[in-house]
Design a binder for these strands. Structure first.
Lengths: 344, 344
DNA sequence: TTGTAAGCGTTATCAG
DNA sequence: CTGATAACGCTTACAA
């Protein structure tokens, strides 16, 4: 009612709401955090005052005392890329990251925690580490793409709750979610063999990241150790050039496992350039079952990874860690499945 | 030296640093915010104490008093998409957003402000608005993709500093950065005409977003109003299906302007499927000059938009607005250029 | 140049 | 069930 509380500029304070509702600030706080005991009548009055004044809690003041910010970061780290910002091109070009974001967002929403995406390369590692240390977020979902990435260890050392999107390269007592990479690659090899392919080959991901090495291992375990392999970088053009190298050296290959759908799309183009028909001349299997698989011509047979569910699981684990500080690390492994379309 | 300040758990407080350095907390604060007057000796001692204790300012406490968080959000809003999370697939599949992120990050770094990416659709508009109101960030770089998106107006109403990535649909006193869309489209039309094309057509973006409508207008201004146009959605498959429709109705077309490189990539595929050779049978020009243009076969002639520079400019404007609250809105328009490759 | 002390807007612990 | 009243960790006049 006072002149002062009437306007309140752009950001009414809790005291102003309290005044408007004729209660104490403590009661307003209780209503907002819907604490058990507040008389229904009072509660309504406070709610009214809140909407009337357009009150929004000041997050700084709140988290100063609660030590929580109700938001978590999805950090996408790519330390090895060239010094320019080309890593951002990869991130915003590969459907994988969108799927992770979608899965995490969905799982976080019911908990009322915000998700912010933070891409980073070696250049701003420090900036990001500082961001995390400063307490902007309560925890981290971390996608790291190199075994030389110091970030996972740093985050762990910082003691900030974290969940990795894949098995850590080194031994690190941290929770993570992953798919059974080897098994997925085996499925691909078996399918190719069952299809009658005689000369198998593969385009792997970078070998310094577990997903790259594991998919290669798994494929070789079934296809035979000496199968030709070229290393790609999980990009479309990377897949394309790798396929060309492969075809140069092994013109007779008739079955190809590519460690990601995006690379497979590139490989398909190389195959087409060389006049090989898919799947008649060479059968191709991808990995991920991302939107890229459906954009392939022909539609790509691929190893499906339930990325959205995996990301949701990551979010759940992270929430648990945030909620229970001492909680011991846990890892959950999803099983991949083969999705058969037209390329193999 | 005391037992208490010796360990200090994971988060030493400023008082502990002060104690370690034998000064008052105020002095530590001055050193951290490198205020003018601190004796060199003292300053060093404090610096030592800081690194020794591993001190990091508590952002909540700090921003409670400064009212700044030293971080801004890049909000990517796509309100019209289907109810699932497919909008995230678009965002993480179109190189444009990576370029914006790169440009903004680069411009923000010298100011020591963090950038967080926040994708949002209609489902979590509220969540995002709350995030912004709560004061997690000092300002917003906003990419909005529909004239029906309420976010720009909401953000403006909230009074939080903001810069849009394109001309707002309605009249809104807010700063923005844009490229001269019409001019870019004109460049494309002129080039096609100069090349001798007789039957032009275009695949536009959604008409409810300025970039979509403006590029169409500009093209028609030069190519002639009745040129056939099909509407795409800025995705590759959208471009592909639009091209098919166009070819069904106008089999004789020999010059095609596609309002984005990604759509052009799809159009190229449609052209190839129908046995049209590019550029011999039909010349194709894209828009953006993104990485997609180089992945096209043949490499795409396209209207270049200096997205990174534009994003950097956005960041500068935002910093200015944050620094000077009352500052009046400003818009800066970049000029597009034609990049000639092999498709036209 | 440095220290003292008063907040910043919440939550949370007490009494009442 | 509600209301005072301490913190929370930092910045910033104001004094010294």
């Amino acid at each position: 009612m006072s002149a002062k509380s009437g306007r309140g500029g752009h950001h009414p304070t809790m005291d102003q709401v309290a005044a408007a509702a004729g209660v104490s600030r403590a009661t307003v706080s209780r209503v907002i955090n819907n604490a058990a005991s507040v008389a229904p009548g009072i509660r309504d009055a406070v709610q009214r005052a809140i909407t009337q004044t357009g009150y929004v809690p000041n997050v700084a003041a709140r988290s100063l005392v609660t030590r929580r910010s109700d938001s978590v970061a999805l950090v996408i780290s790519e330390p090895d890329r060239p010094d320019d910002h080309s890593f951002l091109n990869r991130i915003f070009t590969d459907p994988y990251f969108g799927r992770v974001t979608a899965g995490a967002t969905g799982a976080l929403r019911p908990h009322d925690v915000h998700l912010v995406v933070v891409p980073t390369d070696a250049d701003d590692h420090h900036q990001v580490v500082r961001y995390l240390r400063q307490g902007h977020v309560d925890g981290v979902l971390l996608i790291s793409s190199s075994e030389h990435d110091p970030l996972p260890a740093q985050v762990h050392a910082l003691g900030i709750p974290a969940v990795l999107a894949s098995r850590p390269s080194g031994p690190l007592p941290v929770s993570y979610v992953d798919v059974d990479q080897r098994h997925g690659a085996r499925l691909a090899a078996e399918h190719l063999l069952a299809r009658g392919c005689r000369s198998l080959a593969t385009i792997s991901g970078p070998l310094d990241i577990p997903a790259g090495a594991d998919r290669l291992d798994g494929f070789r375990a079934v296809a035979g150790a000496p199968v030709p392999a070229e290393i790609g970088d999980f990009t479309r053009v990377g897949g394309e050039t790798a396929a060309h190298r492969l075809l140069d050296q092994h013109p007779g290959l008739d079955g190809l496992f590519v460690a990601s759908d995006l690379m497979a799309e590139g490989a398909l183009r190389a195959l087409q350039d060389r006049g090989r028909r898919v799947p008649d001349d060479v059968a191709v299997i991808g990995f991920d079952d991302s939107s890229a698989a459906l954009e392939c011509r022909p539609p790509l047979t691929t190893v499906r990874q339930p990325v959205e569910e995996m990301a949701a699981e990551m979010a759940q684990l992270l929430i648990a860690h945030i909620h229970t500080p001492g909680r011991s690390p846990r890892s959950v492994i999803f099983q991949p499945t083969l999705v058969i379309r037209d390329s193999a």
